[in-house]
Design a protein around this nucleic acid. Structure first.
Length: 389
DNA sequence: AATGCGGGGCG
DNA sequence: CGCCCAGCATT
């Protein structure tokens, strides 16, 4: 965890002085830095979300020509607006921008609200953008914590909180709250972001050129490379299954016990088959098996289901034509997608079932351990089929 | 806490 | 070419 006391008053003042002097010398000339017009700052900050400065500049200039005021933005026709954003991506940003402009016309008398609390009520403005506008336009000492700032601050104070976790943002906001310049919070925030993009870069930071390296704890210790701590979200690997929900004439369901080792060991599920076994002859839509449009393709899949059931269980179910909507279940390292087919069998001959399989009545399900995916399959069945007769 | 949104840069 | 990036809203 982070320490809560960072620098003495003197060190804090010393840092601000050095840092702001550097910013004054080195800051880039950008169209939205010409003045402190809150509208310009707002639009630029929205455009800069997930978008590089060089990309934003021409869009910003064009946007300001087309919609020079909040009122003009609020009244802009949808197609003109979208056209002005074309190519920037994340189009909900521009829709929210206009929603907020309308909100400002109606609730704030056409003037940008001037407190952090009010600014943050606007659509598309979260914690970062609130801090950016409040500090840059109104001189409020509000942190504006984005990825750059978390990186810089984590190195300055050797903060080990994982910046990939949403709740870590709070730690960095508190740290910024402690060190932000009360005299010039807007430039302080912008200096943080400039430093992060120019010098205190993710890879190969230019510490020897850094204006504040004498304040940097990780630089002093030679541990800059350890920061920020950022967990890689190990992408859960997708695995596709077909689930068989087989009911016999006594109302019992076929359950299968999983192997004694490995994932979900010894737990019970409806039989699961790797999807490829059913679909090696067909193309599966992105949304899963239940989105197969062609009757013919469905028939091929059904035929494969039949063969699989015969081979493994000596059962000959009558299947529904389409599977239930695909179920998702996320493990740490795997993401299961299961398309369940419901089928009925007449035969009650149990002798041919494999040893790890049983027909079980729902009354007795509580005696069996069901893992998450099985709970979801069961719920999906009950929702779609279990009710109706 | 996890996911979708859309481009661009990078290996 | 696929992988990763990162604020915000939504769920």
């Amino acid at each position: 965890m982070s320490n809560s006391n960072h620098w003495s008053k003197e060190e804090t003042a010393d840092f601000s002085y050095t840092f702001l002097a550097w910013y004054e010398r080195e800051k880039r000339t950008l169209p939205w830095r010409e003045n402190k017009d809150p509208y310009r700052i707002w639009v630029s900050e929205i455009m800069l979300q997930q978008t590089r400065v060089d990309t934003v500049i021409p869009y910003f200039l064009n946007f300001m020509t087309l919609f020079p005021t909040i009122k003009a933005l609020a009244e802009a026709p949808e197609d003109t607006l979208l056209k002005a954003w074309e190519g920037l991506g994340y189009y909900s940003r521009v829709r929210n921008l206009q929603k907020s402009a309308i909100q400002i016309m109606e609730d704030f008398d056409g003037k940008m609200p001037q407190t952090a609390a009010e600014i943050s009520t606007l659509k598309g403005i979260g914690p970062y953008t609130t801090g950016a506008i409040a500090s840059m336009a109104y001189g409020l000492p509000t942190p504006a914590v984005d990825g750059n700032v978390m990186r810089v601050v984590s190195r300055l104070f050797e903060i080990t909180d994982d910046i990939a976790k949403p709740k870590s943002r709070k730690i960095f906001e508190e740290t910024m709250q402690d060190i932000i310049s009360r005299d010039n919070p807007g430039d302080f925030n912008q200096a943080m972001m400039d430093l992060g993009s120019s010098t205190c870069t993710p890879k190969n930071p230019s510490c020897n050129l850094c204006p504040v390296n004498e304040f940097c704890q990780s630089y002093e210790k030679g541990t800059v490379g350890n920061y920020p701590v950022k967990s890689k979200k190990v992408k859960a690997k997708p695995v596709y299954y077909v689930g068989m929900i087989i009911k016999n004439e006594k109302g019992e369901f076929l359950l299968e016990k999983r192997p004694t080792e490995g994932l979900l060991a010894n737990m019970w599920t409806f039989p699961l088959f790797p999807e490829e076994m059913m679909t090696h002859e067909v193309e599966v839509p992105a949304g899963g098996l239940h989105e197969i449009a062609s009757e013919q393709t469905q028939q091929i899949v059904l035929k494969q289901l039949q063969e699989a059931m015969t081979q493994k269980y000596q059962l000959h179910p009558t299947f529904m034509k389409r599977p239930l909507p695909e179920i998702k279940h996320i493990f740490t390292h795997l993401k299961w997608f299961i398309a369940c087919y419901y089928g009925q069998v007449d035969q009650v001959k149990l002798t041919d079932l494999p040893e790890n399989c049983e027909f079980v009545h729902p009354e007795n399900f509580e005696k069996y351990t069901f893992p998450g995916p099985q709970q979801k399959m069961l719920a999906q069945y009950q929702k779609n089929i279990g009710q109706k007769k």
